[in-house]
Amino acid sequence: MEVTITHDKEYQQFTAKLGQEDAELAYATPSDEVLDFTHTYVPESARGKGVANKLIEEGLCYAEENGKKVIATCPVVKKFIHKNPDYHKLLK
């Protein structure tokens, strides 16, 4: 599944347009150096196709490229980081 992800800093989320529905990874910024990934949503019709993983990877790459640490409040993000040790270094 080809997914294009956009980042909206104002609304603090990464969004994947999926036709009439969107998938999203929301975050908060408890400080200038930290992103807290709070919520992941993928419409039921797109679940099981790797959309959440792509959103999370995009968010984590953004954090790394911008020198930010990460808090994984969202259980889906926490599980993804746990399974992908390359991202452990980003955890606050």
Rank of each mutant, 00 (worst) to 15 (best):
P43D: 07
K49W: 11
K69M: 08
C74W: 06
D86C: 13
Q20A: 14
P85H: 12
P75L: 13
H88F: 12
A23I: 03
R47N: 05
C61T: 13
S31V: 05
E44M: 14
E57K: 01
K78R: 15
L25V: 10
F80A: 07
K9H: 14
V76C: 11
A23T: 03
N66H: 15
E57M: 04
S31F: 03
P75Y: 11
K17M: 07
K54I: 00
C74E: 04
E44S: 13
G59E: 00
G59F: 01
V51H: 01
K54H: 02
A52E: 03
K89P: 08
R47H: 05
T15K: 05
E64W: 10
V51W: 00
D86L: 14
T40P: 08
L18R: 00
N53V: 04
L91G: 06
T29A: 09
E33R: 12
R47M: 05
Y27W: 06
I56D: 02
L35S: 05
E21L: 08
A26E: 10
V42T: 10
Y62F: 08
E44C: 13
K83F: 12
V34W: 01
E65T: 11
I81C: 04
M1I: 08
A28H: 02
N84M: 10
Y11H: 15
A52Y: 04
L35A: 06
F14K: 02
K49P: 07
K69R: 11
N66S: 13
K78C: 14
T40W: 08
T73H: 06
N66E: 11
L35N: 03
G59D: 01
K78T: 12
V77P: 03
L25S: 05
K89G: 09
C61N: 15
E21C: 12
E57W: 02
G48C: 14
E24Q: 04
K17Q: 08
L18G: 01
D22K: 00
E2N: 09
K69Q: 10
I5A: 03
I5W: 04
